[in-house]
Design a protein around this nucleic acid. Structure first.
Length: 804
DNA sequence: CCATCCAGTGTTTTT
DNA sequence: CACTGGATGG
């Protein structure tokens, strides 16, 4: 069943290409569009090439031109080119651009895609070599965790000490390094008393039994196959005449091996990357891969793209200043012809809420065009945060002021509870042996099938060596289940049978009996012709829709809405199975909403994007650079954080605004922080320090920004102010020095007793006042100007401590 | 079997 | 604080 078309097409095309190869190359106008470095990279078609492409240097342009050039010179047919990206977005864009350059759609590029998508295609063809059937399912993280939990329980391991999440992380790490259970080095294995490898081994067996893979397996299995089956490898080495890789700095060991194996014959491999933008070390990416390229492929041509077409000189200079702090770089210096533009703007705030408030106002100001540059559309602006929890403050604020925003890469559509439940139903219906899916839905909605009943099913299934669904059937037949749940279970099983029959009628039956089914499959019920309708029926008849209709919680309507969307999304697919495949790999939720919106996303999600105006909030030590990253990976971690800063700044075309807050709510507790060390690394001649607005509003409180309160000029040169110097002193020598203590006194709950009724205090907004009552951290204060108010202690300070 | 309450725990980053 | 998992009682 699975398509040989890409290859058959290849065979035919290959013959055709022989003749076209003999032809003289057609004129190539696209070459004139390139700068010398780009052109060099595009024209170096044979042999290994490393394209070191800095941010905004036209790397995608070069890459797509290269593909077009390969086609145009007749060196390769579309299906002879293997072009790998990391994200679906990147793959899509490349496809579009190639299509545009060719003047027609680039459907002929079946091997342009993500590592994972390409590996799935290959693995479906060779699944049997690793003990799978070609219709294997791909588990997501959620299933993975549940599977591991079962194994942990079965092994009597204390889940407190070894949480499933952690084990999953360890196993993922091993897979990223292309280690099968047997290949995990003893030194690694012993770190977990060899229990880890034991679980890993069991986990892999279980996956095989379930005819399933996880994400890491897709690559691992292919590497295994290539290593063990020379003939298969040789076949692909021949098929893929030219290989191109985007974001090479993000490849992990498994991906690296995969590439090296495939390129092993002709070595026509072109890797594009930027060591300064390597930000995925935490998930196994090895910067070493790119740093080592010339050793791996001796004689490789190295081309540097250094002319930046994106950002203004100030922004570039700021970014360069930061990244300069890293060691062991391949070395690139970006330059640009662009006009000077605005300096990078820096501003400190009292706390995170105020930062969000200020950013909201700035966004509106930029939109109105009152910030010195032309009015910008909301689409032209982005807020890039280090960690997703930072998004909340902005969402809250934007909601209250009615500023439209979109969160990119947030909690994804397909990861929502109701969507995953619905998907589990679809999975059971398309592949009845999918035990994980069955488990998920058997008692959702509640069918009176609790732990005991489910265990019963498990045991029966295991005894008979069949799937859970079959186990349930047997259990029912044997009468091994008592009254109440029995009826419901029977209804469910019958329902699945019914739906499955229809699904098979749609042509999604497992390969073995596909023919039989098409011949003599049951006639679908009247009116039930499309898989879209089938999906709706499944959700309705199973009681799942009803479950949410009866749910009175505020999120229930939204969930029903999402389910509707899900069913609608099915329209663009042939059948349920096609849809499931799509979802497991293409988890992006690009709701192409045309309304103008500000984008909010993590720095990681922003890689590869660009915006005229970029906000980089939360530059505080511990948050960015993240404490955890530094604790876990030390200097390496810090350097990765610094690269993240570099990525962030280089997203900006015209306006780049960095901000930090003195106080932030963490775990519901107020914590104070110092400005990020990366702020110190910004070259001051390229930075303009802004004064926070408001009477005494914001500022970095008692520390550096204080000087600006004295200097009423709105563009105080903070770098040369005593306040800034002092702050730097403190940062390097005594991180929690005096001004910090002052603040802690105010924040720290234990220090609240520092206030007494009658004491004169100061508040950011309300000014001076007297405390009239104290309850917990809430103070009643009679303000001199604003009158009596109830205020949380953190917002006030003793009048004696007011620094001006 | 299910709903509810409590305690403990965790926040990077994701194909 | 917000979410989860476990314990408890109906």
């Amino acid at each position: 069943m699975s398509s040989h078309d890409e290859f058959d097409a290849f065979e035919g095309a290959a013959r055709a290409s022989l003749s076209s190869r003999a032809m003289a190359a057609r004129p190539a106008p696209y070459l004139d569009d390139l700068n010398p470095a780009q052109r060099e990279a595009v024209e170096a078609l044979e042999g290994p090439v490393l394209m070191l492409a800095g941010a905004g240097t036209g790397k995608t342009k070069a890459l797509t031109s290269r593909i077009v050039h390969l086609l145009n010179t007749g060196k390769a047919q579309p299906n002879e080119i293997l072009a790998v990206t990391f994200t679906n977005k990147a793959a899509r864009e490349m496809k579009n651009r190639v299509g545009r350059m060719l003047g027609h759609a680039a459907e002929g590029m079946p091997w342009l895609g993500t590592f994972h998508a390409i590996c799935v295609k290959l693995l479906r063809r060779h699944a049997e070599l690793v003990g799978l059937k070609s219709n294997f399912t791909i588990l997501d993280t959620d299933d993975q965790i549940r599977l591991l939990k079962q194994l942990i329980a079965a092994n009597n391991i204390d889940e407190k000490r070894w949480p499933a999440r952690m084990i999953a992380g360890i196993i993922d790490g091993w897979k990223n390094r292309a280690w099968t259970p047997e290949q995990v080095p003893a030194s690694e294995a012993s770190a977990y008393n060899n229990r880890g490898t034991e679980i890993y081994d069991q986990y892999q067996r279980r996956l095989r039994d379930l005819n399933a893979t996880d994400f890491g397996d897709l690559l691992l299995h292919m590497v295994t196959i290539f290593q063990k089956h020379e003939d298969v490898l040789a076949q692909y080495q021949r098929w893929f005449r030219y290989i191109m890789v985007d974001e090479y700095q993000d490849t992990n060991v498994a991906q690296y091996l995969w590439l090296r194996l495939l390129a092993g014959g002709h070595r026509n491999i072109c890797c594009v990357g930027d060591d300064d933008q390597s930000i995925y070390g935490w998930r196994g990416a090895e910067v070493g891969n790119i740093l080592r390229f010339e050793k791996d492929f001796p004689g490789a041509k190295v081309v540097r793209l250094e002319q930046n077409y994106r950002s203004t000189p100030h922004i570039l200079a700021a970014a360069s200043g930061v990244i300069r702090g890293n060691e062991g770089r391949l070395g690139k210096e970006l330059w640009t012809d662009a006009e000077e533009g605005e300096k990078v703007r820096l501003i400190g705030h009292w706390d995170g809420d105020e930062e969000a408030r200020w950013v909201g106002e700035e966004v509106e100001a930029l939109q109105r065009g009152t910030r010195g540059i032309r009015p910008l559309s909301l689409d032209a602006m982005a807020i890039l945060v280090r960690a997703s929890h930072q998004m909340r403050a902005f969402e809250d604020r934007f909601l209250t002021i009615g500023l439209p925003y979109r969160v990119i890469g947030g909690p994804r559509f397909y990861e929502r509870l109701e969507i995953r439940d619905a998907m589990a139903y679809f999975r059971v219906v398309t592949s009845p042996e999918d035990d994980l899916a069955f488990e998920r839905i058997v008692n959702t909605p509640k069918r009176g099938l609790g732990d005991k009943a489910q265990q019963n099913i498990q045991v029966t299934a295991r005894q008979h060596g069949v799937s859970l669904l079959e186990g349930a059937r047997i259990l029912l037949a044997e009468g091994g289940i008592s009254g109440k749940g029995a009826g419901q279970l029977r209804a469910l099983v019958e329902g699945i049978d019914r739906w499955h029959a229809v699904a098979r009628w749609h042509g999604v039956a497992p390969a073995e009996d596909a023919d039989a089914v098409i011949e003599e499959g049951p006639t679908p019920p009247k009116g039930l012709v499309s898989h879209v309708e089938l999906a709706q029926v499944i959700l309705d008849e199973s009681g799942y829709t009803e479950m949410w209709q009866n749910d009175k919680t505020p999120e229930a309507p939204g969930r029903l809405e999402n389910l509707k969307e899900l069913v609608k999304a099915l329209e663009s697919f042939e059948n349920l199975q096609g849809f499931l495949e799509h979802v497991s790999l293409i988890m992006d939720n690009e709701t192409e909403n045309s309304e103008e919106k500000v984008s909010i996303m993590t720095l990681h999600a922003a890689k590869g994007l660009e915006f005229p105006a970029v906000f980089l909030p939360g530059w505080e030590d511990g948050l960015f650079p993240s404490q955890r990253s530094m604790d876990e990976s030390g200097l390496k971690g810090l350097e990765e954080e610094r690269r993240l800063a570099y990525v962030g700044i280089t997203r900006a075309e015209e306006v780049c605004t960095i901000s930090f807050a003195g106080n932030r709510r963490v775990f519901g507790q107020w914590q104070s922080a110092l400005p990020s060390r990366f702020i110190d690394e910004l070259p001051e001649e390229h930075v303009e320090v802004l004064t926070p607005p408001g009477l005494y509003g914001g500022g970095y409180g008692a520390a550096g920004m204080q000087s600006q309160l004295h200097d009423k000029a709105s563009r105080a040169d903070v770098y040369n102010s005593p306040g800034w110097k002092r702050m730097q002193e403190r940062q390097t020598h005594r991180p929690m020095a005096q001004p910090q203590e002052v603040r802690n006194q105010v924040i720290d709950a234990s220090a609240i007793s520092a206030y007494t009724v009658g004491e004169r205090v100061f508040h950011q907004k309300f000014g001076y006042g007297c405390i009239t009552a104290i309850e917990g951290d809430k103070l009643d204060i009679a303000f001199e100007k604003a009158g009596p108010k109830k205020v949380v202690a953190k917002f006030i300070m003793s009048a004696d401590d007011v620094p001006f």
